[in-house]
Design a binder for these strands. Structure first.
Length: 644
RNA sequence: GCCGUUGUAGCUCAGUGGUAGAGCACUUCCUUGGUAAGGAAGAGGUCAUGGGUUCAAUUCCCAUUAACGGCUCCA
């Protein structure tokens, strides 16, 4: 007999070789029907795999991340089985579960898969699922596995085998499909009740663009049709929040083929948002001791050789233009210009920390396939500033920048993000990163130290630093799940030296300052794209391009409506009058759809009493108020930058 | 940059080897209305661009371009 410890701490005795599924059945039949896999001594196992010794056991269902992953991974095998029936000779690479479903990468040889094939594949999968074929695990010696795939001519699985040791090689078979796989899998295909194949995409083998492009098939499955329907419904909802859709509907920005890809033109409504963000940033930075500067958007080649941009970053810059025998580049960053400002006058330790801010545009030649609405563009407004400080000041300065992020995040109610400490990679010193091994380690330790002292949760990632130093990126996700860096805070030990930046210390020698590059709001493009999705277009009053729309009941009250609107404008409230010849219901509907925060309905009653009938977007009638009373309330809401 | 899909009116989208349609928006007129769509008429399109096939191409083929879904990249 063996002792099985359950999550509640209870210990039960079972026969040696009993399975998790048997144990589930001994608890309840209902539970057994839901068990997808099991965590046995912390390892995820097939529910049907015999347990041969004492173990702590957690039965995994759809509600456990690992259970779900088992389900989706098994679904990938089911999909592969269906693909193999329709595309004989297909070779498979890997088929892991992902955040919302699973994919399988495959080499279809000279065959092509089209969107039309997806329906047929789904049908086939449903058919195979209904057969409730068990997923059968089989261990195999490496030599035998190598022989099997050599005969089959499957270079992909042979490649996988290279990294596996004898004794840890397992195969899984369901129905007529066998795959090299470490598992685990769900008991049988009958658990998969609802199937949706999402898309066909290309993906480089092993994620390396030098390798062959494989066909990647994405799918998602659920234990019931209802859950699939809900998921698809959720995707529809997410689409409504997509900043590209909202950006168009709300008149925020536009693109034009004649201007060029990734070059955003801000419409009047979007420009209001930019100005409000800059106002917030200027206020905040003034308080934090920053000075504002303005610099040109181009510079000579020599400066970008000094800065390191051309050696390390040329591919992402627009090609140069030539004038008077001199090459000029559009800037991809503001920092070199700011270094020149630092260098313009001699600095002493008394001038440090020296903080300069500028929200000028920079230009980056992003790969065409990477452009994405406002989130990835070729002309961007950085919320940029550079801090020049001594080593001793670094901690306080870096911490103050982090605090600034957090202050902004509070204003915007941003709580879903990840701070990533991005480090260099030793192997790429001199290629992707300036070749200063000790300085890298030293500054990375400094940054890590600040994060720890401030109790800021973070994750460390290798090989993601800037070429001049380590950084902290704040990661967010767009509504459709794409990952983006919202804000960034970087240390630079390199450019100060290359620009020969110096200050005189208290004991009268010269020292090179450390530089902090920071953009707590990232770029205005990305930040506004993010905000549109974050608020689903329902912007807080202070950010809303049109804050108030005055809606006269009929033309008779148009003059009064205009008078009210003028009064609001005088009080710095962005107000418009809906003077169309429409019924009030229509005016309200259209204004609701434009997500204007306040509607002021005015008719005979209001006119006679110098009042307005207030309506809050999405909330309906909020009662009648005096005009001055409304102005006072709205002004307070704006001034405090209240979320609502 | 790579793989795949798409490009028809300002927007959302039908449609066709014989030079195009709907709804919304827009203009004008009627209507002057109390909290999410009043009525009528009208205007608006080199069917992304360039080639090819054809008696004839918006439709079929090729190239280019842009957007979209991924991959790769990303200061």
């Amino acid at each position: 007999m063996i002792n099985i410890t359950l999550p509640d701490g209870s210990v039960r005795q079972y026969k040696k070789g009993t399975t998790s599924l048997d144990i589930a059945k001994s608890i309840s039949e209902g539970l057994a029907r839901k068990v997808l896999s099991a965590s046995v001594n912390g390892q995820v196992w097939d529910a049907a795999r015999p347990i041969t010794g004492d173990a702590t056991l957690k039965l995994l269902t759809w509600n456990d991340a690992d259970g779900k992953n088992t389900f989706w991974h098994s679904s990938a095998h089911l999909m592969a089985e269906a693909v193999e029936t329709m595309f004989p000779g297909v070779k498979f690479w890997v088929g892991p579960p992902v955040e919302n479903g699973f994919y399988y990468d495959m080499d279809l040889g000279d065959k092509k898969m089209t969107e039309e094939d997806l329906t047929a594949l789904e049908k086939k999968m449903n058919e195979l699922a209904k057969q409730s074929n068990s997923y059968i695990r089989k261990e195999m010696p490496k030599s035998e596995a190598v022989k099997y795939f050599t005969e089959k001519g499957d270079e992909y699985k042979l490649d996988l085998l290279q990294n596996l040791n004898d004794g840890e090689i397992t195969f899984y078979t369901q129905g007529n499909f066998t795959d090299l796989c470490r598992g685990p899998h769900i008991p049988n295909t009958g658990f998969i009740k609802a199937i949706k194949l999402m898309s066909i995409a290309g993906a480089y083998w092993k994620g390396d663009e030098k390798n062959k492009m494989l066909t990647r098939l994405y799918g998602v499955t659920f234990p019931s049709q209802k859950e699939l329907d809900e998921y698809l419904q959720m995707l529809e909802e997410a689409k409504k929040r997509d900043h590209r859709k909202l950006g168009k509907e709300l008149g925020i920005y536009t693109l034009d083929d004649d201007v060029g890809p990734g070059l955003i033109m801000w419409l009047p409504n979007g420009t209001v948002m930019i100005e409000e963000l800059e106002k917030l940033a200027k206020e905040t930075e003034l308080e934090a001791g920053y000075k504002r500067v303005v610099t040109p958007h181009i510079a000579k080649e020599s400066m970008y050789i000094t800065s390191g941009h051309l050696p390390y970053y040329a591919e992402s810059m627009y090609p140069p233009m030539e004038m008077e025998g001199e090459k000029y580049y559009l800037r991809s960053m503001n920092c070199p210009h700011h270094h020149k400002i630092f260098a313009a006058t001699p600095k002493s330790y008394r001038d440090l920390p020296y903080r300069v801010a500028e929200y000028g545009t920079v230009y980056r030649y992003e790969q065409s396939g990477e452009l994405f609405g406002l989130m990835r563009v070729r002309c961007l407004h950085m919320n940029d500033a550079h801090i020049y400080c001594s080593k001793e000041q670094f901690n306080d300065e870096f911490r103050a920048v982090n605090d600034m992020y957090l202050k902004y995040f509070k204003i915007f109610g941003i709580d879903k993000y990840v701070m990533r400490l991005s480090l260099h990679s030793k192997e790429k010193l001199g290629i992707k990163y300036v070749n200063e091994p000790e300085l890298w380690l030293e500054t990375e330790a400094m940054v890590r130290n600040v994060l720890k002292e401030s109790n800021i949760p973070y994750v460390e990632v290798q090989d993601e630093a800037a070429f001049y130093g380590p950084k902290i990126d704040v990661q967010i996700w767009s509504v459709i799940g794409r990952e983006f860096t919202l804000a960034t805070n970087q240390v630079d030990f390199s450019q100060g030296r290359s620009f020969k930046l110096q200050y005189t210390t208290a004991d009268n020698h010269t020292e090179t300052p450390l530089i902090i590059h920071r953009a707590p709001l990232g770029t205005h493009e990305r930040f506004i794209g993010f905000l549109l999705e974050h608020y689903a277009g329902k912007l807080p009053l202070w950010l809303a391009p049109v804050q108030v729309k005055v809606l006269p009941i009929s033309d008779k009250f148009l003059d009064y409506a205009k008078a009210v609107s003028d009064k609001l404008k005088k009080a710095d409230i962005r107000s418009e009058v809906d003077d169309r010849n429409e019924k009030i219901g229509k005016k309200i509907r259209d204004t609701e759809l434009l997500k204007v925060p306040y509607m002021l309905v005015v008719g005979e009653k209001e006119m006679n009493e110098n009042k307005v009938a207030v309506r809050r977007q999405g909330k309906g009638d909020a009662g009648v108020k005096g005009v001055d009373e409304f102005i006072a309330e709205a002004t307070a809401e704006i001034k405090e930058r209240r979320a609502e």
